[in-house]
C-alpha cells in the first residue's frame, strides 16, 4: 500500500463534519436535518478509521462498526418519529414545530 498522510485524512473528516454542522444549522426541514446529522456521524466514523490506520490497529474499525449500528438504530427511530409528526401536523418545518409554533 502506498503511504498516506494521515493528517489530511483527519482534515477531510473535519471538513465533512463542519459541512454537516452547517447543514444542520441552515436547513429547516426535519428530514434534511436528520440527513445532515448522518453526514456528521459518517465524518466522525472516518476520523476513527484514520486514527486506527495510523496506529495499525483494529480498534478504529471496531469503533466504526459500533457507530454504524448506533446510526442505524437512530435513523430507524428518528424516521418513525418524523412520519408520526408529519401525519399529525402535516408540516416538517422545525421552526413552526418549535417554540413559537405551538398550537
Amino acid at each position: 500500500m502506498a503511504s498516506v498522510p494521515f493528517e489530511y485524512g483527519l482534515a477531510v473528516a473535519g471538513i465533512l463534519f463542519i459541512l454537516g454542522l452547517a447543514g444542520v444549522l441552515v436547513r429547516r426541514n426535519l428530514l434534511f436535518i436528520l440527513l445532515c446529522v448522518e453526514i456528521m456521524l459518517n465524518a466522525a466514523g472516518l476520523a476513527f478509521i484514520v486514527a486506527g490506520a495510523r496506529w495499525g490497529q483494529a480498534d478504529g474499525q471496531v469503533m466504526f462498526i459500533f457507530l454504524l449500528s448506533m446510526a442505524a438504530a437512530e435513523v430507524a427511530v428518528g424516521l418513525a418519529l418524523i412520519l408520526l409528526l408529519y401525519s399529525r401536523r402535516k408540516d416538517l418545518d422545525s421552526d413552526a414545530l418549535g417554540g413559537s409554533g405551538r398550537s
Partner: peptide, 14 residues
C-alpha cells in the same frame, strides 16, 4: 436563548 427553535440550540452547541 429560549426560543424553542432547534437550529438555534444547535448553533449554541456549535
Amino acid at each position: 436563548t429560549q426560543n424553542g427553535r432547534v437550529r438555534w440550540y444547535a448553533a449554541g452547541v456549535a
